[in-house]
């Protein structure tokens, strides 16, 4: 089963990975946008997921990981989006693995982030930290790519090429965060322009995507 699959019923179709407000503000370089995310917000998410996975495997409490993720995700709109996506994924994880301690540990948190919920899925399925980080990166690229097809006049084959060409960067990002274990190690790689777009999008009354 693919966790980074648009067919997973977790409301992925409501997400553009922040692309919609970026495009509304004139952005056209989608591959560049994807790269920016991979080195900033997506890297933070992947690192938080990896550290959460370590904590789940060691049966350590997750509060500090969540706090570190939140501190490195300064946009309230982005934190809300992540928690809403976490809720959707958790709903599915509880149905799939109702007895799994890792899922129960995350479900016990107050509005867990999406990286924390993904980490619980990784813990149950035996996915390693590098695979988890790769999944976060790949899923983000695909989310932006499929939203791009709705937002811009594009040839879907070109978009598939963008995804393909971003894979080495996904891999590099995953490799960079795979060894992390402490909340303090989660990179603080803010992206003020992405955050500003996310905040603007949360306030607009015209949008196709929730975020």
């Amino acid at each position: 089963m693919l966790l980074a699959d648009a067919r997973l019923p977790v409301a992925g179709h409501t997400q553009s990975g922040g692309l919609e407000p970026a495009v509304a503000d004139g952005l056209r370089d989608v591959p560049g946008y994807v790269r920016t995310r991979l080195t900033t917000v997506t890297r933070v998410d992947a690192a938080a997921g990896v550290v959460a996975l370590h904590h789940l495997r060691q049966a350590l409490p997750l509060g500090a990981v969540e706090a570190a993720w939140a501190a490195r995700t300064p946009s309230l709109a982005m934190r809300r989006t992540s928690r809403a996506q976490g809720k959707a994924l958790l709903r599915l994880a509880v149905r799939l693995w109702p007895d799994a301690p890792a899922v129960a540990a995350v479900a016990a948190l107050d509005s867990p982030s999406r990286p924390a919920v993904l980490a619980s899925c990784a813990a149950v399925t035996g996915l390693g930290p590098r695979s988890l980080a790769r999944l976060v990166g790949y899923d983000d690229v695909q989310t932006v790519a499929s939203a791009a097809l709705k937002l811009l006049p594009l040839d879907p084959a070109d978009v598939a090429c963008w995804v393909h060409d971003a894979l080495p960067e996904v891999e590099a990002m995953a490799e960079g965060v795979a060894g992390l274990t402490s909340p303090d190690d989660i990179p603080a790689a803010g992206a003020p322009q992405l955050e500003a777009w996310a905040e603007a999008h949360a306030r607009t009354t015209r949008r196709l995507f929730s975020a």
């Binding site: 019923p9 977790v10 992925g12 409501t14 997400q15 599915l92 995507f209």
Partner: peptide, 16 residues
């Protein structure tokens, strides 16, 4: 929001 997929949101992925 339905991400331009109103059909999906009420039928195949009703999560939201």
């Amino acid at each position: 929001e339905t991400g331009a997929c109103p059909h999906t949101a009420i039928r195949d992925d009703i999560t939201a």
